[in-house]
Amino acid sequence: MDQFDRAQEFEARYRDGAIACVLAAVPTGPGTTHCIECGEPIPEARRQAVPGCTLCVTCQAQMEETP
Rank of each mutant, 00 (worst) to 15 (best):
M1R: 10
M1A: 09
M1H: 11
D2Y: 02
Q3V: 07
Q3K: 13
F4P: 00
F4A: 10
D5P: 03
D5M: 10
R6D: 07
A7W: 11
A7Y: 11
Q8M: 13
E9I: 01
F10S: 05
F10E: 10
E11D: 05
E11C: 06
A12F: 02
R13L: 11
R13W: 07
R13D: 04
R13Q: 14
R15G: 00
R15I: 05
R15S: 02
R15N: 05
R15Y: 01
R15K: 13
D16E: 15
D16Y: 02
G17I: 02
G17A: 06
A18L: 14
I19N: 03
I19K: 15
A20T: 11
C21T: 09
C21I: 06
C21W: 11
C21E: 15
V22E: 08
V22M: 11
L23G: 06
L23M: 15
L23H: 15
L23Y: 14
A24H: 11
A24M: 05
A24N: 13
A25T: 08
A25Y: 03
A25C: 11
A25D: 08
A25L: 13
V26Q: 12
V26E: 09
P27C: 02
P27F: 05
P27N: 14
P27R: 15
T28Q: 12
T28C: 07
T28M: 07
G29A: 03
G29T: 05
P30W: 03
P30E: 13
P30M: 06
G31P: 04
G31M: 09
G31N: 04
T32K: 14
T32M: 08
T32Y: 01
T33R: 14
C35P: 05
C35L: 06
I36C: 07
I36Y: 04
I36F: 02
I36S: 11
C38S: 07
C38R: 09
G39D: 02
G39R: 09
G39S: 07
G39N: 10
E40S: 11
E40H: 10
E40G: 01
E40C: 03
P41A: 03
I42F: 01
I42Q: 00
I42D: 00
P43G: 02
A45M: 03
A45W: 04
A45N: 08
R46K: 10
R47V: 01
Q48N: 13
Q48K: 15
Q48A: 09
A49V: 02
A49R: 14
V50P: 00
P51M: 09
P51V: 01
G52K: 12
C53S: 10
C53A: 13
T54F: 01
T54W: 00
C56N: 05
C56V: 03
V57H: 04
V57Q: 10
V57L: 11
T58K: 14
T58D: 13
T58F: 04
C59D: 13
Q60D: 07
A61K: 12
A61E: 09
Q62L: 11
Q62I: 00
M63Q: 14
M63G: 06
E64Q: 12
E64G: 05
E64V: 03
E65S: 13
E65Q: 15
T66I: 01
T66Y: 07
T66L: 12
T66A: 12
P67C: 00
